[in-house]
Design a protein around this nucleic acid. Structure first.
Lengths: 340, 340
DNA sequence: CTGTTAGCGCCTTCAT
DNA sequence: ATGAAGGCGCTAACAG
């Protein structure tokens, strides 16, 4: 039993195969009577147009590719969630390419953006390097950066969050509470994946410190690969300092959890002995009562897709840069310092 | 600047179309010299075969579709992770269809499994109903169930976990500690999505109770939609009972977190006043020190894909049913009852 | 070994 | 309004 094709429908309906095609594609130039008859046969035969043939003929793939790193991390998942939900309402399929190694990052960045693989590419949290640009441009297909950036603002559409401001907000909150010994625990500022968030939040941290006249102390900044465990190690080290910080700003909620573990292990109460603030406001943050900086994860994915669909529809000629706000969420892990 | 096709390569290399195709497809019947020349031109022109055309010609889509519910839940994500990682090493693309409503469930279950959309379908955690079967069979493409089941064992390949045994293990652990008033908090046993895990774990719970001669008390079983919040409500109710349970088995770690919240709110210490055991062993469980039943989430996805690839390669004629083990992970939320 | 040709299933222009 | 025909880019079967 082989698949039913447009030819079968045409034959059974007693029309030419062009007419069937017109019915499928809602062409106005077909009489009501024939249309009805053809639709009947289509239902009868349970016919569906073969997507592959359609794509080849039209010259579009009807798929949007998403390149995402570490799609197990809650914040990326939430962005993907927004992408998936929004794209599901369209005619486009979703192809996810998960990146967990640098080789894979480069390979995806160079191979995926091709007209014959996808109609558009959304790059999640992976900021292109200069050497990636040629591949992205040669591709000649729309590219939307979500939570990723590149100095060459002119050519790329993007949905970003102002992480510098977010980092400032977090640090300022601690300063406002009276803290002056404030640690920052983050991913590697110079990651091989070229994540920019930790770097931007670091800038915000430094700015807030400067504005408050608090000198920056290098030993109050710990950086390591992303992860709860790594953050715990960094925090343990920092909390063992002769003059330990009274507050720690973690570059993500996941890392904040590592800091909480370290505090627990060191016999420090949170927030009485140590204030902790995270970043992202992932679901677990509320459970833990974690003070954090909320960013619009789901919405970033949603907006990215909406932008992409606009471009695909031919709207939106000029590149767009949409900046999402952050919001301080005060919960139970921050308090004025003990002595203050 | 239009895309470079096989014809361009042929022309520039001074050979026929077929020869280029043979080179691309590693056909042995092409002389080393021509092969070299063609490969050179291919590199020169930065040529890649158009996947769509290839698919149409070969009659395969080279994609595997995955239907998954609620792909934000940690346990599903971890399964998807295994799927993605394993599939990435193959020639197949991954198409993810996320299901969050019943209509979507039905639509996916009926539309996706078609030869022209995918070469194979992996259905995650969504057990087909009898009325779904016709669609799955008519499809005439391989289907692999991961964490999903159906009585008609004969025709479907699947990777499942013995949730009845897992439920027994969890309950038995509490019984062994001396508990006799044991609650079970779960999803709706009869969910519109037809999830089977809560139901199977419930069976295991009942079996363990029976075996220990503990009568089942209906008020010790609470069911509601899946979620931390919902589980908290159920637990609050259960803990307010005149004779409250001394231990609670939650159908997932996420729900166990809700129980922990309820205990906290009720002023009960865990595990001194209340023992709690979860299920899944998602990452957060370790952080919380939660006693739980571990299942092999990543591996289930991996095995599902391996099974699918075997079938796609023509191996594995007879349907396979692979049962994954569970393992009790004792951490800090279970202890003998206070009075015991 | 290699060039040529006939489809894969659909869309689209061109006549009618 | 509709049927016929050409082509999307590639593979595979057929000659040579």
């Amino acid at each position: 039993m082989t698949a039913v094709t447009i030819r079968d429908v045409a034959k059974k309906a007693g029309v030419g195969l062009g007419t069937v095609s017109r019915v499928i594609n809602d062409s106005p130039q077909v009489s009501a009577a024939t249309r009805r008859r053809v639709l009947e046969v289509i239902a009868d035969l349970n016919y569906t147009p073969n997507p592959t043939a359609r794509r080849l003929s039209i010259g579009k793939t009807f798929t949007v590719a998403v390149i995402t790193p570490f799609f197990t991390r809650p914040s990326f998942i939430e962005r993907l969630h927004g992408i998936e939900n929004t794209l599901a309402e369209s005619d486009y399929d979703l192809n996810i390419y998960n990146v967990e190694t640098v080789e894979c990052r480069d390979q995806c960045m160079h191979q995926i953006p091709r007209r014959d693989r996808a109609d558009g590419v959304i790059i999640l949290s992976l900021s292109p390097r200069d050497e990636d640009l040629p591949f992205l441009q040669r591709a000649e297909l729309p590219i939307v950066l979500v939570d990723a950036n590149h100095p060459s603002l002119s050519s790329l559409n993007r949905v970003i969050v102002d992480d510098v401001a977010g980092g400032r907000t977090a640090t300022q909150h601690l300063i406002d509470l009276g803290h002056r010994r404030i640690g920052y625990i983050s991913d590697l500022l110079d990651s091989p994946f070229n994540f920019t968030s930790s770097r931007d939040r670091y800038l915000g941290y430094r700015q807030a410190l400067d504005a408050a006249g608090i000198p920056f102390s290098p030993e109050y900044h710990g950086q390591k690969e992303h992860g709860r465990y790594e953050a715990r190690l960094l925090a343990e080290q920092m909390l063992a300092l002769p003059e330990r910080p009274t507050a720690v700003f973690a570059a993500s909620d996941t890392q904040a959890m590592g800091v909480l573990e370290a505090a627990r292990n060191a016999g420090l109460r949170v927030p009485e002995d140590l204030s902790v603030i995270g970043y992202d406001d992932i679901e677990i943050a509320e459970y833990l009562g974690l003070t954090t900086v909320r960013q619009l994860l789901y919405e970033s994915g949603q907006l990215g897709v909406e932008l992409m669909l606009d471009i695909l529809e031919g709207l939106n000629a000029a590149p767009v840069c949409q900046v999402l706000p952050t919001e301080l969420i005060v919960r139970g892990t921050t308090l004025p310092p003990a002595g203050g």
